[in-house]
Simulated scan of single mutants.
Amino acid sequence: MTITWRDFRRARRRSRQAWALLAVTLLALLGGLGWFFTAGQFAIAEPRMAGPTEAPVLAAGWMKPVAPVRAVPSGLAVDVLAVLPVKGRAASGNYNRSVFGQAWLDVDRNGCDTRNDILRRDLAGARFTEGSRCRVGSGSFQEPYTGRTMAFRRGADSSKAVQIDHVVALGDAWQKGAQQLSPLQRQHLANDPLNLIAVDGQANQDKSASDAATWLPPNKAFRCHYVARQISVKAAYGLWVTPAEKDAMKRVLGACPGQQTIVPR
């Protein structure tokens, strides 16, 4: 069989095409491996939970607003974030919970303490304990931080499964402006329904005093509301954000550019 020059050129062209295809495949494989060992393994491992995208603030008829330092500005959360002061953390060595007053006061004067107000607001089918019109004994809800459906039952051991979280943690607030507030203003911050949500106890412990730079709810669907609520609280009580916190908030809001501030209604 005689191999012509045309056959030789055709074979060489096919060989080059095969080598080019192999090179592209190898580059794609290396790129995929690089992505996996940097961010991909975390994206794959991260739980994708369906859950609520927002949470209530007030309940009409029986829950009253708490007077903040200033009204929450209405508008885009990202615009309000842009005007919040940006500073480093203040010292926290002199912090303890008592600087925000006694826990769970009846600040809005509706006859029930704040913890039970929030449970009643957030739980579906909330039932009071026998003989009480305030103490919530049971109920269920779709928990916002994890997206799971949870049941609450009052008891020495069972109550801790559902906790009331300060959206802007009090320890974080203390390091970002709350030291300049009056005792009454700090008491209001600790009991303001805008800053309180019933959540999974373990998620609340995981969050602790973290800000948005170091902790966000595992339920991604809730993150826009969560960050907007933190911005609203900080604006209402004259608190600042750190540079890392502001960057983290902007990244979250980048996925929901129309997110509004959370104005109590």
Results as ranks from 00 to 15, higher is better:
Asn204Gln: 10
Pro193His: 02
Ala213Phe: 12
Ala221Ser: 12
Leu216Cys: 01
Gln202Gly: 11
Leu194Gln: 02
Lys207Arg: 04
Asp192Phe: 10
Ser210Thr: 09
Leu194His: 02
Ala213Lys: 12
Ile197Cys: 00
Ala198Lys: 00
Gln202Ile: 12
Val199His: 00
Pro217Ala: 03
Asn204Asp: 13
Thr214Pro: 01
Ala198Val: 08
Gln202Thr: 15
Ser208His: 12
Trp215Thr: 13
Trp215Phe: 12
Ala209Lys: 13
Val199Tyr: 06
Ala213Leu: 13
Ser208Glu: 01
Pro193Val: 11
Asn204Pro: 08
Asn191Pro: 03
Thr214Tyr: 14
Asn204Thr: 06
Asp200Ser: 01
Asp192Pro: 04
Asn219Gln: 14
Leu196Gln: 05
Asn219Asp: 03
Pro217Ser: 11
Ala203Lys: 04
Ser208Tyr: 14
Asp206His: 10
Gln205Ile: 15
Lys207Asp: 02
Asn191Lys: 06
Asn195Ile: 00
Gln205Asp: 15
Asp200Phe: 03
Gln202His: 14
Thr214Cys: 11
Ser210Ala: 15
Asp211Ala: 11
Ala221Cys: 02
Asn195Arg: 11
Pro218Phe: 03
Asp192Cys: 10
Pro218Ile: 02
Pro217Asn: 07
Gln202Ser: 08
Asp206Phe: 10
Asp192Ser: 11
Lys207Thr: 00
Asn204Ser: 11
Ala212Lys: 04
Trp215Glu: 04
Gly201Met: 02
Pro193Phe: 04
Ala203Phe: 08
Ala213Gly: 14
Asn191Leu: 11
Asn195Ser: 07
Val199Gln: 10
